[in-house]
Design a protein around this nucleic acid. Sequence first.
DNA 1: CCCTCCTGTTAACGATCGTTAACAAGTCCG
DNA 2: CGGACTTGTTAACGATCGTTAACAGGAGGG
Lengths: 193, 193
Amino acid sequence: MAEVSAPPTRRLEILSAAAELFARRGYHGVSIGDLGRAVGLTGPALYRHFRGKEALLVEMLVDISERLLTEGRRRVAAADTPDVALDALLRWHIDFALDNPALITVHVRELGNVPQPERREIRRLQRAYAEEWVRVLLLMHPTAAEDRARAAAHAMFGLLNSTPHSTGELNRDTMAALLHAMATDALTGAFRA
Amino acid sequence: MAEVSAPPTRRLEILSAAAELFARRGYHGVSIGDLGRAVGLTGPALYRHFRGKEALLVEMLVDISERLLTEGRRRVAAADTPDVALDALLRWHIDFALDNPALITVHVRELGNVPQPERREIRRLQRAYAEEWVRVLLLMHPTAAEDRARAAAHAMFGLLNSTPHSTGELNRDTMAALLHAMATDALTGAFRA
DNA sequence: CCCTCCTGTTAACGATCGTTAACAAGTCCG
DNA sequence: CGGACTTGTTAACGATCGTTAACAGGAGGG
C-alpha cells in the first residue's frame, strides 16, 4: 500500500502540520492521532518518520533556533555599521515572524516540554541568537550596561513575536513597517538618559 | 479529618499554585493530581472547590481579564488628558505584569483551552481592555487609522508581557522604568510619518 | 449529645494517551 | 520473478488522565 509518490517531503509535511497544531492547542493538547490525521495518516504511521512525539518537537525547535541564529549572524557579519546591523536583524526577525507565525509561537512557548539533554542545546542556540542582538546594541550604546541591553532585546522579541496574536487587520507590508518603526523607537528609548 | 482551619483561602491558594504550574508546563501538561499535590492535597480534593479542571482555568482567566479591564477603565476615566491616560495605562499594565508573571503568561497562552460559551466571554473582556488602549491612542493621534492603533496596542502588549521571559537580570524598578521608556517611544514611533 | 455540613481521603470508572507488534501493499533492484 | 526495503495499516499494551463514588473525621448549632 502507498500512494503515487512518498518523497521525503513527508517529514516536512508532518512538521508543518505539527507546528500549526502545537501553536493552536499546545504540545500536550495535540495527540499523535491528531498529528497523523492532519496529514491524512493514522497515528502510528508517524513512527516511520520520527522516533516519537518528543523527537518531533525537538527537531522543530532546533530547526527554528538554528535558522534564526544562522541568518542573524550572517546579516550582522555582512553589515558595515552597528546601525545597519540592527536594521538587518530587525528586518530578518520581522520577516520570519510574519511568514511563520506558528513556528514563532511554538518556539516561544514549548521549550519547557523538551527533556533535558536536548533542552540545553536549544537554549544555547536561543541564547546565542539573543547575544547577537545584545552585541549590536552594545556597539551602538557603548556606555550601556549589558543587563540593560539584554532586557531590552527580550522586550523587543516580545514586541516582534506578538504578530501571531494580532488578528491580521493590517496587510503584511504595513504590519512589517509598523513593527520596524515601533521596534526602532523602542530601542532608542531603552538607552535614552 | 481536617486541619486547624480551612478558610476560603483554599480556593485562592489552589488558583495561585495552578497559575504557576500552568505557566510553566501549560494547561494540558498539568494534571489534577499535580495541582492537588502543589497545595498539599490529593487530586480529587480539588472537586470540593471547583467543578473541574476547565472551570478552574475559566475562573483564572475571567479574574485576570476583569482585573485588567476594571482598573484600566478606572485609570483612563480618572485622567484629564490622553497623554496622562496612556501613562496611567502603561504603569498599570507594567505593574500587573511584573507582579504577576504567571498570570500574564496563562492569560496570553491558554485562552484556546477554554470551551466555547466561556471562551467568548473572556475574549470580550480582553477585547474591551484592548479597546481602552485603542481609544486613548486614537485621541492622541486623531488622524490615525483604527486598524493601526489596534495593531500597535497588540504589539505593545507583546512588549510588556515579555517580562516573564526576561530572566530577572534587572531589579523591579529598573525593569519597570525600562519597559515604560521603550513602550512610550514605540507608541510614538507607531504613529510617526 | 446528636445531627449536619464541610473538607478531606482511597478506590475505581471509562477514555485517551504514546508506543510497539504484527502484518500488508507497493517499489525497486538482482 | 523474487526477495528486500519502505511506508502504510489495525490491534493491542500499559500508563495516565479527569471524574465520580463511598466513606470518614472534625466543627458547630439545636
